[in-house]
Amino acid sequence: MSPLPTVTSSTLSASPPTGRARLMDGAALARRVVEETAARAAELTRRTGAAPCLATVLVGEDPASVTYVRMKQNRCTKAGIASRHLALPAATTTRELVDTLRALSEDPTVHGILLQHPVGDHIDERAAFEAIAPEKDVDGVTLSSFAAMSFGRPGFVSCTPGGIMRLLDAHDVDLAGKNAVVVGRSAILGKPVGMLLLARDATVTYCHSRTADLSAHLREADVVVAAVGRPRLIRGADIKPGAVVVDAGYNAGNVGDVDFDGARERASLITPVPGGVGPMTIAVLLAQTVDAAERQLGPGPRARTAVPPSPR
């Protein structure tokens, strides 16, 4: 496997890059993370006699969600993680879903819980998320997890932001003092990734659907994280020469939130869609499931968080 390219702080300068941006290969990095996670899961199972277990809960039969949950189950199997799937009818009420999640939270044989979203407009999704015990919130969706992440306390990060930080770390992107623009403000992607960037001493600007003159903000960005869910919203001309571009968007037709071809001509590093952020999301989910199992099953090698806190 070829080594990942190294990016130094000089990469994030105002001078244009030479040639096209290099790709941040999330698929390759995810394979490495899953291999490490599988080794940890095997050791934990050998030591305790219990395999780490991830419970997935799906409400309804949305085709994309069904496919995504099945993919996660397959990755669990490959990593030596047991999976338990609960498929609930589309008519499930908030109370029924909350009761299901609380029961899983109290089940000692389940170490991590994932509620696949969206869950339907008739359900109070936040109430459902909050029914997940913080120590089993391996998807990092509860208020407790967000607070712990924001204050640099032990806990679980949202998986996609955690995957983004691992990608940046793998490419040695120095964030200290750099201007980072996050386009998107969702509770499980935009907001948490901004907090993680801030913890690494980046100067963070949140942009969104009501931001005036988005292009002006982007042209000042050393690092761009696109997480708004609008195909090709960010044009190549919006990218500062030499910037690092992370496209966390995924739209119909395998299209991200960034005009990939145009942005690649100006950026120094860029994630492809697909094959960039997506594989890292699942890899972090598996890693955090093993973290949770290590903590719940007793003494052993120190559990690691997906994103180490800033040293300062």
Rank of each mutant, 00 (worst) to 15 (best):
R126P: 00
P301N: 12
D213F: 02
L12H: 05
V277H: 11
A87H: 14
S144V: 14
V69Y: 08
M71K: 01
R219V: 04
Y68D: 00
Q296S: 15
E43F: 00
R95N: 10
A30E: 01
M24E: 07
D174F: 08
T305S: 12
Y68V: 05
G242M: 06
G155F: 13
L269Q: 03
L4I: 12
A252G: 06
A293H: 05
P272Y: 02
L286A: 07
R40H: 02
D137H: 08
G229W: 04
G155C: 13
A243R: 08
A41P: 00
T94W: 07
E106N: 15
E265F: 04
V66Y: 02
R304T: 15
L101T: 10
G253M: 05
D124S: 01
E43L: 12
Y250H: 13
D257K: 05
P134Q: 01
E220T: 14
G249V: 10
L86N: 06
F260D: 04
Q116S: 01
F260H: 15
H208W: 03
V255T: 07
P231V: 00
F260W: 05
D172T: 15
T289F: 10
I239V: 15
G177K: 07
K72T: 02
T142Y: 06
R75M: 13
G256I: 03
C159Q: 08
I81K: 11
V255G: 02
C159G: 05
L197D: 07
Q288T: 10
P308R: 09
A180D: 06
T18F: 14
V33D: 07
G275V: 14
P134E: 04
M165V: 04
R126F: 12
T211C: 11
A148E: 11
E130A: 07
R166Y: 03
V138N: 03
T203G: 09
T6D: 10
A226G: 07
T160G: 07
L12M: 12
R22F: 09
C76E: 11
A292S: 14
L88A: 08
D238V: 01
D121S: 14
E125V: 15
L167R: 03
I270Y: 00
E135M: 09
